[in-house]
Design a protein around this nucleic acid. Structure first.
Lengths: 137, 137
DNA sequence: CAGAATCCCCTCTGATACTG
DNA sequence: CAGTATCAGAGGGGATTCTG
């Protein structure tokens, strides 16, 4: 019974150690997942259309990310036996539900990105977060 | 007027090209940010308490992530001129608002992580998302 | 058209050692 | 106590080339 000081638990807000959130963030935290999901939110698209709709993505990353999404059951892949080949990708129900959750994050982003940018700019000038020590007496 | 096929825009759901969301995801997408923010959600903590409350984090990553959060205005750093040193970290209003948004994501995570794990396990067996091609005729 | 394979750089992350 | 400095490893991500 020597609880001298109150120590915050790992994360009392969530069950377990918060591994669930990390699992999700590992998925949507990468560079392209959210972009792909949001692009597919309007309906199924084929590979080339996805690539055209997402400027800057390489086929490597497009293919890679799509495979991950497919494995997690967020998108479905449908290949048609015809030549030239044609492959359609479509959001699953699970994928659409994630899209909704991401939209919530997006809401926060559009609401606060200016504030963040301003803070970052200010920190740049004042040296906050980069070594300069300011002590409070 | 030669719009042969409908092409999905980069992201008609959000303003611009969705850079806002990427900016946020770059911040919370890393391994520790969410854990730190949620740990601070119950109130200010000093450096050592944070380290003790987040098992597995190295001082390198703790310091690094805290600096980033400070620069973006999500936490404040208060150093007291005393010996031994004492530094408190506390969520700003902006930080708390992000915590709320993250909690929304967490809700999705706890609701669907089982489904995702199941999908991933199934894909593992069937070979989905890993080369094996299944064509639809 | 829809990818697979390869090469390479860069960042993130962890481990260790040192300091005011 | 609260960091900083340095090193090493793993993986993300881009560019390029090749194929069914």
């Amino acid at each position: 019974m020597a609880a001298a000081r109150q120590i915050a638990g790992p994360c009392q807000a969530w069950p377990g150690d918060g591994a669930f959130i990390r699992e999700v963030l590992d998925r949507i935290g990468d560079k392209w997942t959210v972009l792909i999901i949001s692009t597919l939110s309007t309906g199924p698209l084929r590979y080339s259309d996805l690539q055209a709709s997402i400027p800057g993505i390489s086929q490597r990353m497009l293919t890679r990310t799509l495979k991950h999404l497919e494995r997690d059951g967020l998108v479905t892949r449908t290949a048609y036996a015809q030549v030239p080949p044609r492959v359609d990708y479509e959001l699953t129900g699970l994928g659409r539900s994630l899209m909704d959750a991401v939209m919530a994050m997006a809401g926060w982003a559009v609401a606060h990105h200016r504030e963040i940018a301003a803070n970052r700019a200010t920190s740049e000038r004042t040296g906050v977060g980069r070594g300069r020590a300011r002590v409070t007496t």
